[in-house]
Design a protein around this nucleic acid. Sequence first.
DNA 1: GATGAAACTTACATAAT
DNA 2: ATTATGTAAGTTTCATC
Lengths: 157, 157
Amino acid sequence: MQSLDLIDRKILSELMRDATVPIARLAHRVGLSQTPCWNRVQKLQAQGVIRGRVALVDEAQIGLALTAFVEIIAAAHTPEWHERFLQALTLFPQVMEVNRMAGDPDYLLRVVLPDTAAYDRFYRALTDDIPVQRMTARFVMERVHSATVYPLNVTSH
Amino acid sequence: MQSLDLIDRKILSELMRDATVPIARLAHRVGLSQTPCWNRVQKLQAQGVIRGRVALVDEAQIGLALTAFVEIIAAAHTPEWHERFLQALTLFPQVMEVNRMAGDPDYLLRVVLPDTAAYDRFYRALTDDIPVQRMTARFVMERVHSATVYPLNVTSH
DNA sequence: GATGAAACTTACATAAT
DNA sequence: ATTATGTAAGTTTCATC
């Protein structure tokens, strides 16, 4: 199942940067001809290594200027609570990311919102749905850096 | 400069989900014909609302199984320290995200790594480059949810 | 904004080496 | 793996309404 050689990693590096590059140019960059390059891309997609190709949008320009990291401690350390909690979160599309953590806090959420008033509404709505022991927001002042390109050991570039 | 009407938001919603959709189908979905839809997409790209189209890759399948959120408190609250700190971070491609926070901690980083040993190397290398008052890692046990589709008020779907 | 079409580029499949 | 070929499909531009 696993078999990412150097060329596969080069392909992924290119496509993580820019998924609009034509196969012919991609093939040239990774040192292959078109056919095997195309086959590799198809395989990477079939394997789920490439999960999809999406447009990245500037949050600020669509009115989502505020990012909050929200730390949550469970009200009860039971399977039922976790289940209910995750179920409740599905109602909030502003929750972009849900991470179950190794300890304190139990969950770390990344939430995008128009402003702090929207965060307060989110806070009330969520705690209305599900009891929590603690829910603390840490607000982002500035997103200094944001990447979607994972580091692969590719010497090119 | 700002002018995102309903149709623009529908276009963005679609492209955030799947950037491979042909213009003809996209146009149909948002209720336009091909040419004006194409013009809008071009404009959104020129404006920077669409920052790019990228392939999303499964971290686990490329050997980056560990995500850490790293909290950092500055050694000195001076412009020089912040400058040096951000400069130092550019050397570490495993740092996917750098957020300057509203207080404690000063910075919150998202870092992707193969394992905890790699985190330790990162910790040593960074603190070797730049003094910090505190650097604490919070490890992710499970990425329960991860989205790249920002919520826009689009009633379709 | 819609339509239609031309010109060009790319994707995808297949076959030969 | 490469090269070559061919068709379908998509993109881009440009008329016209």
